[in-house]
Write a protein that binds this DNA or RNA. Structure first.
Length: 281
DNA sequence: AGTTGTGTTGAAGA
DNA sequence: ATCTTCAACACAAC
């Protein structure tokens, strides 16, 4: 579920580990030559734009990754093992990273010049990974809304002229970038607003509260290095921490921590939405 | 054992 | 226009 905090965490960890490293060779699960031009390129920076990750390369191009639902980066040392019976290929790690089943879906493995491997694990194969030019990177940045952690309150208030459910509004990356299904539930619970509430019917005071809790929830999630409810893992394969702090997400029929009402689940914008029927209006 | 739900996004349909 | 549904894929849980 990589959302802003997971992507931000990934970028921070990648910056610590792969800055200045050069690609030596590239393996991909499918015979895919599209990334072979990375060989010999050095990583000069790693940047988050919305939920996108951009590795800056030394030839003025960028390796772009969108993790989508189950993608995450791992750094370690692997050996490729071929299973003669199933004809599948498997990766074996000396570092216990693979003991977590969620880490066992390596789709791309990049050998770096420090003899370690940067890899992309992605169970559902939805992740997007390709090389972009400067122009394409700028297009990406222009086609998404302001970052949820950088938007000013005044601009945030202006978003609420739309007459759609507040949850749909906050999830739409073209309007505001970074929030996904987990954090939107947590933010709206803290603000006391139902996910179905139409954005243009929310008072200025409530919008300001949503703004405040949006910062609070996202910052707290970053400090816990993200959420490993699903497949997201840190670059060493270990779990992040936010999944132990959910107030409503994934808590259907459990007691609200504030009022003890059972948490409800409904569908908004086609997504499972959790809320407290007593605390949220 | 078959059905349902899961995180993201874009495209297609109503 | 704006909403919902589906599709990409694989698996867990029921």
């Amino acid at each position: 579920m990589p959302e802003l905090p997971e992507v931000e965490t990934s970028v921070r960890l990648l910056k610590q580990k792969v800055l200045g490293k050069t690609f030596v060779c590239i393996w991909s699960e499918k015979k895919d030559p599209s990334l072979q031009s990375l060989v010999g390129r050095t990583i000069t920076d790693v940047e988050r734009i919305g939920k996108g990750i951009f590795f800056h390369l030394d030839n003025n191009t960028f390796l772009f990754t969108h993790l989508k639902m189950t993608g995450h980066f791992l750094l370690g040392e692997w050996e490729l093992k071929e299973c003669p019976l199933t004809k599948t290929k498997d990766w074996w790690s000396k570092e216990e990273i693979m003991q977590d089943k969620r880490n066992g879906y390596l789709r791309f493995v990049f050998l770096l010049d420090d003899n370690r491997q940067l890899s992309l694990s992605d169970l559902r194969k939805f992740a997007d990974i390709r090389i972009l030019g400067k122009k394409e990177k700028e297009n990406y940045a222009q086609n998404i809304g302001p970052d949820a952690l950088k938007i000013k309150e005044e601009e945030f208030r202006r978003l609420f002229k739309k007459r759609k459910p507040v949850k749909s509004l906050l999830l739409e990356q073209r309007i505001i970038s970074g929030i996904g299904n987990i954090y939107v539930s947590e933010i709206l619970f803290k603000a006391g607003v139902r996910p179905t509430k139409r954005a243009d019917s929310i008072s200025r005071k409530k919008i300001e509260e949503i703004y405040y809790y949006m910062q609070e929830v996202l910052r707290k999630a970053i400090s816990l290095k993200g959420d490993s409810t699903s497949d997201f893992r840190l670059i060493d394969g270990k779990k992040a921490g936010y999944q132990n702090h959910h107030l409503v997400y994934n808590r259907k029929n459990k007691e609200c921590f504030v009022c003890k009402s059972p948490i409800k689940r409904c569908m908004v914008a086609g997504r499972g939405s959790y809320y407290c029927p007593a605390c949220q209006h």
